[in-house]
Write a protein that binds this DNA or RNA. Structure first.
Lengths: 227, 227
DNA sequence: GTAACCAAGATTGTTAACAATCTAGTTGCC
DNA sequence: GGCAACTAGATTGTTAACAATCTTGGTTAC
């Protein structure tokens, strides 16, 4: 059997199309399904108690999202993502999240400023405690919050799609020496620039932050080639 | 029957999943299927001689692309796009095509400069002849060429998706008084900035061009509300 | 005359069986 | 021993029938 339910955290009960999609997507994003791993229809059927038709359309949708690869008569497998591709995705995120930051700076309310600044404290606490897991989560919270504040649905959809493809590398980047403190500083700058209401500044700061992630990725690449 | 094959230009012969997808997508983009129009499965089956399963997965894919709307037990219809949404889409295009222009400026070869500049002449000819159709086509050619030159696959995929959603408005914008000559000037500026090799300049010029399209859309909106 | 109700037709959702294709292991030949 | 052809099993693709749901038109009661 090529697929097994490693952690029993999620319910393997009867599922619909969307259920299978989210289950497999989460599995890939959490790293439970390895890149290149096969995803036979029969396994997913018995694992999630869904009909084969449901599994089939779910796989079609995941292929369309770009996280699953399908070959005719050869089935589906988890699409591997190269570091070059991760760089491209982060570059694309840089410009789209830059747009979000600009719009957010224009549209942010007083209450939203308050809850956004609360995330700064979360970041500090996580970095001081050396908690990489909490740091990564707070990071994602910052980006999600700014995306929501921007109220730009088109950009939000695009980022949803990009995120699912690249999340696998986030943990790796966070593990680079000195990365958490640098990232924290950048995130706080982003938060403050959005709260300032200056759209141009917010966009520039967000872009600079994500381009620094690109640099970190390429540094990662250099480290890998060294070994 | 809610669906009819108005023009007999495309082949209504036996089709696979991808065949149905491209046929319906083109139909929507060319305006043969009106916004809100119903797309009953049975009609598509007899029209494209495809199996119902194929039609079904095709509709699921089109829904995922955001150009078709489906409701449970109520079928599929062409998704209407509001002008607000068209503005959002164009804003998103502005930043992503800006990225492409920057990369294209860095990566363009001598031959590519030549073929890109040839498009400037096409634009001039079309505007001088007052041929809106040829003008629109040349416009799209410029954007596609820069996208290809950038060699940024992630951005290319995102633009593919955005394009299919917004094309319906392009003709309308082109019909605004004075628009073709303004658009021609902007496109030529974009072409020259990419050929100059200055990534920052190329990005700025491309963004300015698409933000001027946003202005034109909002002007269109004002005109509509006036009536 | 209006509104609630009901039934028939149309449309979509689901399931199961069958067909086509690929993979891996085995056998036979050189 | 190595390579090619073959066969059995596994896996995916396709089709058709059945079930569930919605829409529409007419009917009836008030």
């Amino acid at each position: 059997m090529a697929v097994s339910n490693g952690t029993a955290s999620d319910e393997p009960s009867t599922a619909t199309v969307d259920g299978v999609v989210t289950a497999v997507r989460d599995g890939i994003m959490q790293g439970r399904y390895a890149p290149g791993q096969r995803l036979p229809e029969a396994d997913l059927v018995s694992l999630y108690q869904a009909s084969r038709g449901a599994v089939r359309t779910a796989l079609a949708q995941l292929e369309n999202e770009g996280i699953v690869l399908r070959e005719r008569n050869r089935g589906a497998r988890v699409r591997p993502i190269s570091l070059d591709e991760a760089v491209e995705i982060t570059e694309a995120r840089a410009v789209v999240e830059g747009l979000c930051a600009a719009k957010a700076a224009q549209r942010i309310t007083t209450e939203e400023k308050k809850s956004l600044r609360a995330l700064s404290d979360e970041l500090r606490t996580a970095v001081e405690a050396g908690d990489v897991m909490a740091y990564t989560r707070a990071n994602q919270e910052v980006h999600r919050a700014i995306r929501d504040i921007s109220r730009h649905e088109t950009a939000a959809h695009m980022l949803d799609r990009l995120r699912t493809q690249s999340v696998r590398y986030h943990y790796t980047v966070a593990l680079l020496p000195g990365r958490p403190s640098v990232g924290m500083r950048e995130h706080i700058e982003v938060i403050e620039s959005v709260c300032s209401g200056d759209a141009d500044l917010a966009e520039k700061t967000m872009r600079a932050h994500l381009m620094s992630v690109v640099d970190a990725l390429q540094q990662l690449d250099a480290n890998l080639h060294q070994w």
